[in-house]
Amino acid sequence: MNIRAHVLGAPLATAGVFLGYVSQLEAGEVGPMAAYMPPAPVSDCDACNDPGFYGGVSLLYMKPYSGGEGLDGEWDLGLRGTLGFERPDGLFYELNGFWFDGEFDREVSPNSIYNYDDDVSTWYVEGLIGDNLHCGEACLDLAFGLRYANLEFESSRTLRRDITDGGEGSSFSEEFEGVGPVVRIDGTRQLTEQVTLYGGLSQAILFGEQDFSRSSTNRAEVTSPPGPGAIILNGSGSSSRDTLAFVTEIEAGLQFNFNAGQIQGAHARIGIEGQYWSIGGSDFGLFGGVLGVGFNF
């Protein structure tokens, strides 16, 4: 009887010790083996961009170019803004805006009796949906979307004040407004922990309307009765046509990453940027430098 009690008592004592040990474990632990947990799978694309909202603002210093003879563009300021959201799987949604307003210097003879004023302005807004194609030290994004854009030229010619009392001259304007698809590719290559090389290329095809308008004011001297004097003759005209515009943009430069406290993914960019328009056989371009900042929030 004592032997049976001893045989049965040893396993019961062991079971009691085990149950007491289990009762002291924290919730979720399973003894010594709980110290090892296999790592969760991580996408390489997570290394390129932090999920969440992001934004950026860039100041552009650009010079316009035109196919018109004798026109030399002046350096002027422009702006670009970006607001977007990226999901953990790399899919992102983005809104972009661009604006530039500049002038041309016309090469004229010192003996010309006219003063000239030539201006250009352009802007666009676009919405994009894209995804990460390749990630790691070198990252590549591809996006498609829709762009709405405007490009306008204005030119005026007036007689010099030292020749006439004023009022005589002519003006001409040309404006394109259209909408169409756009595709964009952006890439980065990390050089050091703080410095990254970046580049981008976009192509848009815009379907729209091109409007032309002219106006003129001429002064005519009158010598017949009731007496000498002058009359002002005004004239104007306009026309429009449907046309296509092809817009190419390219940018490249260096990105400097830095810590901005509560703002994540803060960086500054310095680089060059170019924009080329082809509308119904006419060419127009912009080229210059860019200084921008970006962040995640």
Rank of each mutant, 00 (worst) to 15 (best):
A34T: 15
A35N: 05
Y36E: 07
M37S: 13
M37T: 15
P38D: 07
P39I: 09
A40S: 15
P41S: 13
S43E: 13
D44I: 10
C45D: 12
C45H: 13
C48G: 06
N49V: 13
D50V: 15
D50K: 13
D50T: 15
D50Q: 15
P51H: 08
P51C: 10
G52P: 02
G52K: 00
G56K: 01
V57H: 03
S58W: 02
M62C: 04
S66I: 05
G68V: 08
E69V: 14
G70D: 04
L71M: 11
D72R: 10
D76C: 02
G78R: 01
G78C: 02
R80I: 00
L83H: 06
G84P: 04
F85M: 06
F85W: 13
R87S: 15
P88Q: 10
P88G: 05
L91P: 00
F92Q: 03
F92G: 02
F92H: 06
Y93E: 03
Y93K: 03
E94G: 00
E94N: 11
L95P: 08
G97Q: 01
W99H: 11
W99R: 15
F100Q: 05
E103C: 05
E103Q: 08
F104G: 03
D105C: 00
D105Y: 09
R106P: 00
E107T: 14
V108K: 11
S109N: 15
S109I: 05
N111K: 05
N111W: 00
S112N: 05
S112E: 02
I113A: 12
Y116M: 04
Y116G: 00
D117A: 12
D117C: 01
D118A: 10
S121G: 11
T122I: 07
W123H: 10
W123A: 07
Y124G: 07
V125R: 00
V125Q: 06
V125D: 06
V125C: 02
L128T: 01
I129R: 06
I129S: 08
G130D: 07
G130P: 04
G130H: 06
D131R: 10
N132M: 12
H134S: 12
C135M: 07
C135T: 09
C135K: 09
G136K: 10
A138V: 12
C139Q: 05
C139M: 06
L140I: 13
D141F: 04
L142A: 14
L142K: 03
A143K: 01
L146I: 12
R147P: 00
Y148H: 08
Y148A: 11
A149N: 01
E152F: 06
F153D: 01
E154N: 10
E154A: 13
E154P: 01
S155E: 08
S155I: 04
S156L: 01
R157H: 04
R157G: 09
T158C: 09
R160F: 09
R161W: 11
D162E: 14
D162W: 10
D162V: 10
D162H: 14
T164K: 04
D165F: 12
G166I: 11
G166P: 02
G167C: 04
G167T: 11
G167Q: 10
G167V: 08
G169A: 08
G169C: 03
G169S: 05
S170G: 14
S171C: 08
F172K: 00
S173H: 10
E174D: 11
E174L: 07
E175Y: 01
E175P: 03
F176I: 08
E177W: 09
E177V: 10
G178I: 01
G178E: 05
